[in-house]
Design a protein around this nucleic acid. Structure first.
Lengths: 338, 338
DNA sequence: TGAATGTGTGGAATCGATTCCACGGAATCG
DNA sequence: CGATTCCGTGGAATCGATTCCACACATTCA
């Protein structure tokens, strides 16, 4: 491997000068710079970023720990983070926690050992000792999509309260009587938040949300099927269901499609709505009512906030709004008024 | 920050001994090891992976450069790679080339500078001077999903020839007369391969594939719409179309959905089939015929091959088969025989 | 019992770059 | 015109860990 020493030798200068020439230091004569650059090119020199990072502080790398890479929402988030990071000259190391707190900790630890300049995390749990400790030690940290109560770090979240309220209003005014929710695990902040926004919205219409109408999935595809099946198994079944993320929605729709004869008709006897909008929702029949999150914006803002933090600029929490996309799956069929 | 020197001091030993104790070196007395471990725990010592990598060779990191992270196929691939890598104790740095050869080169360069132990690349182009050079220099490299003629590196590809042949047979025997293809850019090896398998399969039935029936998209969603629109714009339109990847299929279906009145009926007057199967294809009506790739297996094998290569074990190319999933979108409606 | 081998430990060299410091010469300033 | 600042450069220290080497001591073997 050719090192900077070799380049310096070939150019007839000291290693220190070669380094200055190649990293664009101000006080370098054009003549020397040209000689060094020529030598570097001739020797096909590739700087060793590991050595560089050791001496100078900073790796120009940020770590991203997401809770489930297979969920298209996080894919898009990761993509946005990667994009924004690259534009700022940073690389991204991605860790997939798979909704498992232990695996999340594993990645946080690894990434910190790798001396990432900062960390963007979608916390799988609301309380995490390791994240708490990292924030306390002054590691640069930004939380995204889900809050974490005990971690002292800024967060960027999608605030779905208004959209959820609007959705519930729509369900109630179109005559739905028995409204259920399939939400995520209680340990996830986003899950709790969506549930309470939902409950509050129902309360405004003086509707309670009985425990039997709250199902906790794990945010993964298969739990969408299972939990919907559970809801439909009783002898009194709901006439509307709100699914708290896209992956579980896929599972739920699959359940409906594979049990077409036994399952209630959508939207006639069952309204379906989803938190998180996916491109193919409008290709289904009926098309699927969904709440659209500002996914890419979340990723971009997370990176901006992290870079601010790294640069020592002040950073505060941020909430981005969501938009309700009313489609066929929550429509009362024509003429069936009550 | 606490360094190993501090731990050594606290434990009353030399840094070299501390290092041996913590890295599980064989000749260390249990007593000393215990003292060092206690000190490390007490000081909350976190080893600096950058420094470690500089001295010892290897970063236990592999680089993955994919051509388009938003394509669910690559998401799943990335997920599989990440999974297999983690199990082997490696981290993954992901770069997204966005189907742009320049961006691909950018990432390959960055990742090599970061001293990744190996590189898994989905090449955007069939010939890449930088990859060629990297392979020549002996950097560990594995290509996945698409071949690259001039790069001396092992590859893992999904071989769709049989499935494509089967599909074409099915289209021809169910009476389709005018069969078209929307493939990817010519620079992508996978695109060329799918096109030629398709052409060969037609040729067996003595069917030519006229230039007007071959549309080149860019593998992205929007080009699916545009190219299908172009096919349907002429005064003679095809009665079957094969879309060469999932993202373009999404665009194509969107086009059909938004032009429902003007567009031909599927499958009655237009059969639609896709290379790459996505979970929601069977939720559409009509459900979508697709060729399923062994996506996760591709990712796993790529990692295994890369690790073999790093360990100096011999590695050879691999081809994994695909499966045709016949669904409604290519079915002749009952009674409309010819 | 003497030689050979093995074990546990400390000190110093090392990985490859950046950066601090010093120094000579040029430019600037009062 | 002497003093100060600035510029360009080389040599050496440095980042934090691992690993080579040497040495003291214990063990094994012939």
């Amino acid at each position: 491997m050719t090192r900077i020493k070799d380049v310096a030798l070939a150019a007839g200068v000291a290693p220190s000068s070669a380094s200055r020439a190649l990293t664009g230091h101000p006080h370098v004569s054009p003549e020397l710079r040209a000689r060094v650059e020529a030598a570097a090119l001739r020797l096909n020199y590739r700087p060793n970023a590991v050595a560089r990072s050791l001496r100078s502080t900073g790796t120009r790398t940020i770590g991203l720990v997401v809770s489930d890479l297979l969920n298209p929402f996080f894919t898009e988030l990761a993509r946005a983070v990667e994009d924004a990071a690259r534009q700022a000259g940073f690389s991204v190391i991605v860790g997939n926690a798979d909704e498992d707190p232990a695996q999340q900790d594993h990645y946080v630890r690894i990434l910190l050992e790798r001396q990432v300049d900062g960390l963007i995390v979608v916390p799988t749990t609301e309380t995490s000792p390791l994240l708490h400790e990292a924030a306390r030690r002054g590691d640069h940290l930004v939380l995204v999509d889900r809050p974490a109560a005990d971690v002292d770090a800024p967060s960027v979240l999608a605030d779905g309260t208004d959209a959820i309220t609007e959705l519930v209003d729509h369900l109630v005014t179109t005559g739905r009587q028995d409204i259920a929710i399939i939400t995520g695990p209680d340990r996830a902040g986003s899950s709790k938040h969506r549930l309470s926004a939902f409950r509050d919205a129902l309360a405004r219409h003086a509707r309670p949300l009985p425990p039997a109408r709250v199902r906790h999935g794990d945010f993964r595809r298969s739990s969408g099927s299972t939990e919907l099946a559970a809801l439909l198994a009783g002898n009194s079944v709901p006439d509307a269901v709100f699914v708290a993320n896209g992956s579980m929605a896929l599972g739920a729709i699959e359940y409906l499609a594979t049990h077409r004869d036994a399952a209630p008709l959508v939207p006639e006897s069952l309204a379906v709505a989803v938190f998180d909008d996916l491109p193919w929702f409008s290709l289904l029949s009926p098309t699927l009512t969904a709440i659209e999150q500002p996914t890419a914006a979340l990723g971009r803002r997370a990176v901006e906030m992290l870079l601010d933090r790294i640069a020592g600029r002040p950073v505060s929490d941020e909430r981005l709004g969501c938009v309700l996309r009313l489609r066929e799956s929550t429509q009362r069929p024509r003429g069936v008024s009550r």
